[in-house]
Amino acid sequence: MTIEILTSPFMRYALLAAVITGVSAPALGTYLVQRRLALIGDGIGHVALTGVAVGLLTATSPVLTAMLAAVAGAIVIELVRERGRTSGDVALAVLFYGGIAGGVFLVNLSASHTNTNLMTYLFGSPLTTTREDLVVLALLGAAVLAVALGLRPWLFAVCHDEEYARVSGLPVRLLNLLLAVTTALTVTVAMRAVGLLLVSALMVVPVATAQLLAGGFRATQWLAMAIGVLAAGAGIGFAGVYDTAPGATIVLLAIGGFAVTTVVVAGWRRVRRVRPDARDGPAVEPPEVVLTR
């Protein structure tokens, strides 16, 4: 019976949708974590909700309108960030909560307003993925990966040290806007699998886990993508079998992985400190044996 659920077409589509999200969200999220903008995806998700509502209200594709709203929001956020004013913080808060309030307000105006509809976009509904959805997701996911992996040296340079990148003559503003727009695309991709309120988790948590283990930026990015796929795939499987909320299951699995990794890495470091290997051992302190003679 379990196998039947897992091999049914809607399960396959759900799994594919989740895997596309799992691979693309951390690939881009690595740059956001690098730049200490881990929560920016959350803000863009809030703004995208207004887009969804506009789509539902005007009976156009909510994914398309969500994407347009997310891109517009991301560009505004980037322009505010670029100015670096302290008042920018407040401006972003207004934008984020305006986005979510506008979304809820508009959804309730639409003829087909139901809470299920809203919940679908807020917390994801991978099991309702259609073939057409999947095509859109695959295209958006490919675009996100093309930017995140293809432009790694340049995006790394800008996120690592923006001033240095400017002195180097890199097109800093263009790269920043590209990163913002790609973040918006990632939010749109992840909306189906984990929902707008949990988008940021898949962009950030796998990266946080990977950087505990990986020995460099590129390694962190690849490992985070692997962890993202694993969490997304396992989450859909678990949700299919035990009938739990898929988006929340994926995110909880990712967080569980982070918690376990943190404990294991901390334990491993402690073991190594207590029993340093032969190379550093003698240099630390003279052996006590000397004192007994």
Partner: peptide, 29 residues
């Protein structure tokens, strides 16, 4: 033609990077 060494800010960036990765970003110019 310009090599700029800024005043060193704190060690950590968000995601750890290797010496080679950081130095390579200087080659992009």
């Amino acid at each position: 033609r310009i090599g700029y060494v800024p005043q060193r800010v704190g060690a950590g960036s968000g995601v750890p990077a290797t010496v080679a990765e950081v130095v390579s970003s200087g080659r992009l110019a």
